[in-house]
């Protein structure tokens, strides 16, 4: 996606300062004032992947709008689709904020599991099940994979494969939740 080097680790620590050949990009100005500011999402792969299906459920219109704008504008999409891009980012941030407000425990459990298991959803079905339940109850967002022919691979009991290296905290939390609900 990137067409230019954006390696801009301007370090704040003595240690990396003193490392040789630590380079940064000179062009680090702010965007001009007429372009409204938007806070970047600031989340890493695990939380983003964990929230991705909920982001899609809530922000589908914004996302499609943005991608259509990119398609129409071609290489000018970078300049012309800033407004749509801001909407996309704000919507995704709202999803993450809501997840943190309502389902913090389950969300953390799931993205820790993802981090633990190399971002494989199949290793984290139990944590995911807890998260999906909580999110559906409190935010009314549901995960769905388009075109899976009703074979909802992420739901309980729809899997053949079991995690080779399970994430024990989430397995334990799942068992506890099952025991409490039973």
């Amino acid at each position: 996606m990137s067409t230019s080097n954006t390696y801009d680790n301007i370090s704040t620590s003595n240690f990396t300062d003193k490392k040789r050949d630590t380079q940064y990009v000179f062009e680090n100005d702010k965007l001009p004032e007429e372009i409204p500011h938007v806070k970047e999402i600031g989340a890493t792969t695990g939380p983003l992947l964990s929230a991705s299906f909920f982001i899609q459920d809530r922000c589908k219109d914004f996302n499609d709008d943005f991608m259509l704008c990119q398609k129409e504008n071609g290489s000018n999409g970078t300049v012309n689709c800033l407004k749509e891009g801001r909407k996309v980012t704000r919507c995704a941030s709202s999803v993450l904020a809501d997840l943190n407000a309502h389902c913090k425990k389950e969300f953390e459990m799931h993205y820790k599991c993802l981090n633990y298991s190399n971002m494989e959803f199949k290793n984290c079905r139990k944590a995911e099940s807890l998260l999906n339940d909580c999110v559906f109850k409190s935010l009314n967002l549901a995960k769905s994979i388009p075109g899976d022919g009703g074979r909802e691979i992420f739901k309980d009991g729809n899997q053949i494969f079991k995690p080779i290296h399970p994430h024990f905290p989430s397995e334990k939390a799942y068992d506890l939740a099952k025991k409490n609900s039973a």
Binding site: S2, T3, S4, E27, L48, F62, N63, M67, I153
Partner: peptide, 26 residues
């Protein structure tokens, strides 16, 4: 497919962020 879809869902978000960054630096 699930993994692919998860990445597709994040694509607009990441591209929006990248676009802003590229425009800023350009």
């Amino acid at each position: 497919r699930e993994k692919l879809q998860a990445r597709i869902n994040l694509l607009p978000l990441l591209q929006a962020e990248q676009d802003r960054d590229i425009l800023r630096r350009s």
